[in-house]
Simulated assay, not measured.
Amino acid sequence: MSDRPRLLLVDDDLTFGEVLQKALVKRGFEVFVAQTVEEGLAQAARLTPEYAVIDLRIGHDSGLVLIKKLKELDANTRIVVLTGYASIATAVEAVKLGAVHYLTKPADADEIVAAFHKEEGDVGVAIKDKPLSARRMEWEYLQKVLLEHHGNISAAARALGMHRRTLQRKLDKRPVKE
């Protein structure tokens, strides 16, 4: 092991992971990459990283599980969540579980490194003039219900009164732009 800070990167996108790994190595980290939740858990237990970059959706699994496990291994691990599926519900849960920041893809290495060191919120963040669209609000609500049922699509579908496959189709789509 080197004296460089250890960083665990868990993302199922192989190309994105390789590019981000190289960029983070250039910024002084010793980077270990995993492409599944199971690989991420095994590496975390072996390495006890100081930093972690976790994709929110890893295949069909949730990166939120990793946040909780990493914090159990070492409460001082600085975790940034990256996602192409941003929602208010998942951002709130990620921070509640111990992530220091939540970034939407594409995020570059400099944004990620800066996010590791953010200690406080930014009161200068702009508040949007118009509310979310009805389609975006539906997507956000589906995400909230899914989180309430611990990622169990069947249970969430029952709670919503819809067929499981219908919910799955709605969740597989990218979030509606605001």
Rank of each mutant, 00 (worst) to 15 (best):
K170L: 03
T104C: 07
R169G: 02
K68P: 08
V37G: 02
V123P: 10
R169N: 05
D13F: 07
V176T: 14
G161P: 05
V80P: 00
Q21F: 06
P5N: 08
E39K: 00
D61W: 00
L132W: 03
A89Q: 04
V25P: 05
F116I: 05
V145E: 07
A34H: 01
W139G: 10
Y85F: 15
A45K: 09
G151I: 14
L132I: 02
E18V: 04
G121M: 04
D129N: 14
K71C: 00
A107Y: 09
E72A: 06
R174S: 06
E38Q: 02
Q143P: 02
E120K: 07
I112H: 03
Y51M: 09
I67M: 01
A107R: 06
D110C: 00
K22H: 10
T48G: 11
A157M: 01
E120R: 11
S2N: 05
G98R: 04
V176G: 11
G124K: 15
Y102M: 05
E138A: 07
L147G: 13
I153L: 04
R164S: 14
A86F: 00
A89V: 01
K128A: 14
L41D: 10
L171Y: 06
L82M: 05
K177L: 14
I79R: 00
V176Y: 15
H60R: 11
D122V: 14
E93S: 13
K69E: 15
Q143R: 04
A134L: 15
V145D: 05
R164I: 08
E72L: 01
L147W: 14
I88F: 11
E30R: 04
D172E: 10
G40V: 06
L103C: 09
V31E: 10
T90L: 04
H149I: 13
A157W: 02
G98L: 09
T166G: 02
L64C: 06
G63P: 02
D13Y: 09
V10W: 01
V37C: 05
S2Y: 02
L41S: 13
K26W: 14
S62K: 02
P5M: 01
F116S: 07
D108P: 12
S62H: 01
R27G: 02
R4E: 10
I58H: 12
D172Q: 15
I67C: 00
V10N: 00
H163C: 10
S2V: 11
R57H: 11
E148T: 08
E119C: 04
E138Q: 00
T83N: 03
G40Y: 08
S87F: 00
S154E: 09
N152H: 05
S133E: 11
L8F: 03
A45D: 08
G98D: 06
E18C: 10
N76F: 04
A126D: 08
E178D: 12
E138Y: 00
D108W: 14
H150Q: 13
K68W: 04
A109F: 06
D61P: 00
A109L: 02
V37S: 04
R6V: 12
L147F: 14
D129A: 15
G84I: 12
R6Q: 12
L7M: 13
I153Y: 06
A114D: 15
L160S: 05
M1A: 14
A45N: 07
L8Y: 03
A107W: 11
G151Q: 07
